[in-house]
């Protein structure tokens, strides 16, 4: 079983890297990009087959380590 974690900056937290990417896209001629937010995807290989238990465990991992909840939000997908 695999889990996929998306970590993104919370709404309202300024993302200087995303802003730089947006600017670069504009320079390349992609005029329609209003905003860019950059985040992380973390994939985990998990032992076991209980999806609900796995999701709870991965959420605990996010709270303790994978995300900094002061500035970041996360979502967990069991795939």
């Amino acid at each position: 079983m695999k889990a996929r974690v998306h970590v993104m900056l919370k709404d309202g937290v300024l993302d200087p890297q995303g802003e730089a990417v947006r600017h670069a896209l504009g320079t390349l001629g992609f005029a329609g990009v209003q905003g860019v937010r950059q985040g992380k995807v973390i994939e985990l290989d998990l032992v076991g087959s209980d999806k609900a238990a796995a999701e709870a465990e991965v959420r605990a991992m996010c709270e303790k380590l994978l995300a900094n909840t002061v500035i970041e939000k996360y979502s967990v997908e069991i795939v």
Partner: peptide, 11 residues
């Protein structure tokens, strides 16, 4: 300590 240290505004 509260808060977080993010990437410098000028990158």
């Amino acid at each position: 300590l509260p808060g977080a240290l993010m990437r410098n505004a000028g990158l």
